[in-house]
């Protein structure tokens, strides 16, 4: 299993860098993964997006639709792509500790 090192901590991940064990996720892990993607400090909007993704994953076992993220957080669609330059899947879902979604992402 591949691992990535962030700030001296080591995480087991899949080939795409998504957390291998979503249950070890917490706020510290989110912050570290965000930093790995070049987001130095997560702001309120980053957190709101990550929390709604995490909640949906824990309740339904999958990433929410971008529609749900916008509705629940009030963040505008285009702004989400700016907040997470790698996009909602490879960016936000990864920071939220989810497995990589299937398909073209």
């Amino acid at each position: 299993m591949p691992t990535i090192q962030i700030d001296g901590r080591s995480f087991e991940v899949d080939g795409d860098g998504f957390l291998a064990d979503p249950t070890i996720w917490n706020d510290d892990v989110a912050q570290l993964f965000a930093r790995y993607d070049g987001i130095e400090s997560m702001n309120e909007k980053h957190w709101a997006i990550v929390r709604i993704i995490r909640k949906n994953f824990e309740e339904k076992g999958m990433a929410p639709m971008i529609r749900t993220i916008c509705q629940e957080t009030g963040v505008k669609l285009r702004e989400i792509y700016e907040l997470f330059p790698l996009g909602p899947a490879r960016g936000a879902c990864r920071v939220a500790g989810l497995p990589k979604p299937d398909g073209c992402v």
Binding site: I66, R78, G87, P88, A89, P101, G103, C104, V105
Partner: peptide, 11 residues
Amino acid sequence: LNPREPKFYPL
């Protein structure tokens, strides 16, 4: 559509 459109990139 490609499902990534409704899921993540609907514009």
